[in-house]
Design a protein around this nucleic acid. Structure first.
Lengths: 123, 123
DNA sequence: TTGACATATGCCGATATCGGAATATGATAT
DNA sequence: ATATCATATTCCGATATCGGCATATGTCAA
């Protein structure tokens, strides 16, 4: 009996369904961290993180599917770069729980400390 | 040939391995959102979210395993409550990318808006 | 003790994951 | 045209997921 394409069974949620799932894997978080310092090539990332090339390509594929990285093709190289804003949904969600570990004043402290650090840098 | 207990194969990362994995599932995020307004019972949560009782119990089990919820036993009821600080690792990680979508001034705006909202509430 | 209620647990089928190995695709240089 | 380098894709085995359903555990009340 042919299975209808209409009744899809959702067992595990695909990693490409949203950013939360994509980022659940530690290696993928490592990749994003590595891309924080700028564009990088698949080979570079593989060496830096000690992962095989296919593994890195696959992980980048997932990250690309949810839009958290972009690619720039350059000859036989592919430069991957971070697309931070795609992570905002996570930030926004977790932020609603911030009050449970931080008071408003704590956050003000954080902000001031940061401004000071910035001032130092620019002087 | 008997398989040694020492060579465990890690295919998919278990949802109980860390908070990131636990929170990857949308239903579990919904549960945490629901618990944001205070303690709740398994039955209450099941009805509020339109999930079956076993499903809720299992999800809460995962959330409890990573410490993001705590339980209080009360007769035949079990009151689950949020343990926000367990979400901090997520916040801390995603925060390092905040600069990619928010400028310092944007965040100052956010803070001020929040303080105003708070003032309104207390007046 | 028996029964009703609240929750946890076990088993199942369908499915998706992850890394490894092999191979395909694609671009550049000779 | 061919060899080489960089990356993507496919197939595989082992494993974990998720919801449904049935059932076990545990608590209170009559």
């Amino acid at each position: 009996m042919p299975i209808s394409e209409y009744d899809i069974e959702v067992a595990r949620t695909p990693t490409t369904s949203d950013v939360f799932n994509a980022v659940a894997e530690a290696s993928r978080r490592d990749l994003l961290d590595a891309l924080g310092s700028g564009e990088a090539t698949v080979g570079e990332l593989a060496e830096r993180l000690g992962l095989s090339q296919p593994t890195v390509s696959k992980h980048l594929g997932v990250l690309r599917a949810v839009g958290v990285v972009h690619v720039r093709v350059d000859g036989k190289h592919r430069w991957y770069r971070l697309n931070g804003p795609a992570l905002k949904p996570i930030h926004d969600w977790v932020r609603t729980f911030e009050r449970t570990w931080n008071t408003r004043l704590d956050r003000l402290d954080d902000l001031l400390a940061e401004l000071q650090a910035q001032e130092k840098k620019q002087s």
